[in-house]
Design a protein around this nucleic acid. Structure first.
Length: 496
RNA sequence: GCGCCCAUAGCUCAAUUGGCAGAGCAAAUGACUCUUAAUCAUUAGGUUGUAGGUUCGAUUCCUACUGGGCGCACCA
């Protein structure tokens, strides 16, 4: 098609649009007062054969004309309901107008409920209003119900088009809408949980002059008026901990982090992160909170009928395994005492790419990922990470080479990361400097020294526990959805 | 970033060894006053992703490009 205006389908729609105007009917309305949704109308009829007059609105998703009568289905957020148009009820003029209605149009209906002889709750249409004329057809598939299961035919299934045109995807796929409803309910439950525990929801900068709080490559941008580079945050951590210095006892933030790295089924360049920090608590307190929070999230997702069956049963407390002993077991020796060369050859055997280019902490991390993480299917806390992997965590009491840190794994993926937060500014400076050295040696993900953060800490940072939870992945785990693009409304795509 | 695969009508898909580009749905016209993947008849709808090449002839074979999917790498 050369230009879309010449397409015969669009042309026919446009002609009907013009014909509506010619009949004095506005193709785009301002408002329609509904008395019922599709679902509440069906409920209002109950088991009766005749019911009250209802006003419903939605999109025409199916049309079965039959001479002087027509049946249609009207879909709204709550579901769908059948409409029955009868020429004798509507009169000549409205019957003529009806010919200008198409599948995809948004209309408002008034009429009495009744039950057809096949048993379906239906509105006997007395009046119909055009609310929004659809000029571009939606790719509705046909549906049939076989043994109570809805079977779709010839739907809209090209994954590229579905992600690029999410409005269309959502409009024709109630199950896609359902997944985002469940996600939203889960996030509401997380907020309710933390609010009830006395946490204050806050917002910290997305645009940061210095990035930190995680090991990742950032997106960079530029502020014109200030003529300065800015980074999109890779984590909220350092700003939230400044707030604890400022006197807030417990804060949390739900927002987007941005990491300039590959895209695959579990990575989108922007993703949703929950972080919280609680003064006077340590990582053991955080473990209990994470368990409770996960149970609350799982209950919220399970409450959605579409996901009731897919949510894993969570038995608390989750098992705890120690990072070092788990790695020692799989490597058959004392991992921390091994030489760099020994670690490199172990990494080589584990299939780690280019182990000779990795720093020692990276090597350890890779070995742990390869041998231990992938095998953790049930929710499991991995505790007490090596200090060199955890530059923002407090040393473990009685084991100075380790930190008080845990990560929660489930389904082979990391769901949460938490520490007893490092609040000693002298130690923190040393850790930053060690990171800066790695950075100078070529580790692009190692952050530098954040003087502003150190200054805040030097004023006295209360001891605290902190947690980060990847929201997209948590929802993927709970819902059983395997691709991150299916839990993000508008995933990052190349321009078409 | 690397490898493999995919791109045909608005949507979902066909097209034999390289030989006139098709079907279903959606659309238009007509028939049908309880249908429901409604049905029936007729009609229209295409620069086969883009640019080149091989060939008498390319949707089909080759090259490059664009976009996508899957896997690997990086990462959470």
């Amino acid at each position: 098609m050369t230009t879309e205006e010449q397409n015969f389908v669009l042309k026919a729609r446009r002609e009907k649009h013009d014909a509506l105007i010619a009949r004095g009917i506005a193709p785009y309305a301002y408002r329609f007062v509904r008395t019922h949704t599709s679902a509440s109308a069906v409920a209002a009829l109950g088991q009766a054969d005749e019911g009250e007059v209802v006003r419903v609105a939605g999109r025409i998703v199916a049309w079965r004309g039959q001479g002087k009568t027509s049946f249609a289905h009207l879909a709204d957020d709550a579901g769908r309901i059948q409409l029955y148009f009868r020429k004798d009820d509507l009169g000549e003029e409205l019957s003529e107008t009806l010919k200008l209605f198409d599948i995809g149009d948004v209309i408002g209906i008034s009429g009495a409920l009744f039950r057809t002889k096949t048993g379906e709750a239906t509105v006997r249409v007395a009046s119909a209003e055009m609310l929004a004329k659809s000029l571009r057809p939606l790719p509705f598939g046909k549906e049939e119900t076989v043994d109570g299961v809805i079977v779709r035919h010839s739907g809209f299934s090209d994954p590229e088009q579905r992600y690029r045109q999410r409005a269309v995807d959502l409009a024709v796929h109630p199950d896609v809408r359902a997944s985002f409803v469940a996600r939203s309910k889960m996030i509401s439950a997380l907020r309710a949980f933390l609010d009830a525990k006395g946490f204050l929801e806050v917002e910290t900068p997305v645009l940061q002059p210095l990035y930190g709080g995680a090991a990742a490559r950032p997106f960079t941008t530029h502020h014109n008026a200030l003529d300065m580079p800015l980074f999109l945050r890779i984590a909220d951590e350092l700003y939230l901990k400044r707030l604890i210095v400022g006197g807030f006892d417990a804060v949390y933030e739900i927002g987007h982090d941005f990491r300039n790295e590959g895209v695959d089924r579990t990575h989108n360049p922007e993703f949703t992160m929950l972080e919280w920090y609680q003064a006077y608590a340590d990582y053991t307190d955080m473990m209990l909170l994470v368990e409770q929070l996960l149970v609350a999230a799982a209950n919220a997702v399970r409450a959605h009928p579409a996901y009731a069956a897919s949510v894993p049963a969570l038995a608390t407390p989750f098992p705890r395994i120690e990072w070092v002993s788990a790695l020692n077991t799989v490597l058959g020796g004392d991992a921390l005492a091994m030489s760099d060369a020994e670690l490199q050859s172990a990494a080589e055997r584990a299939g780690v790419a280019k182990p000779d280019t990795l720093s020692r902490p990276k090597l350890l991390d890779e070995l742990f990922q390869a041998h231990v993480e992938r095998a953790l299917h049930e929710p499991t806390f991995v505790v007490d990470y090596p200090l060199e992997l955890s530059p923002l965590a407090k040393p473990k009491r009685g084991a100075p080479g380790l930190t008080e840190r845990f990560e929660l794994f489930a389904g082979g993926r990391e769901l949460a990361n938490a520490f007893s937060e490092l609040n000693d500014p002298i130690d923190q400076r040393r850790r930053f400097e060690a990171q800066a050295k790695l950075r100078a040696a070529g580790d692009e993900e190692a952050p530098g020294v954040d003087e502003d953060y150190l200054r805040a800490m030097e004023h006295g940072m209360p001891p605290m526990g902190g947690v980060g939870v990847g929201i997209d992945r948590l929802f993927m785990y709970l819902s059983g959805i395997s691709h991150i693009r299916d839990v993000i409304l508008f995933p990052t795509m190349r321009p078409e």
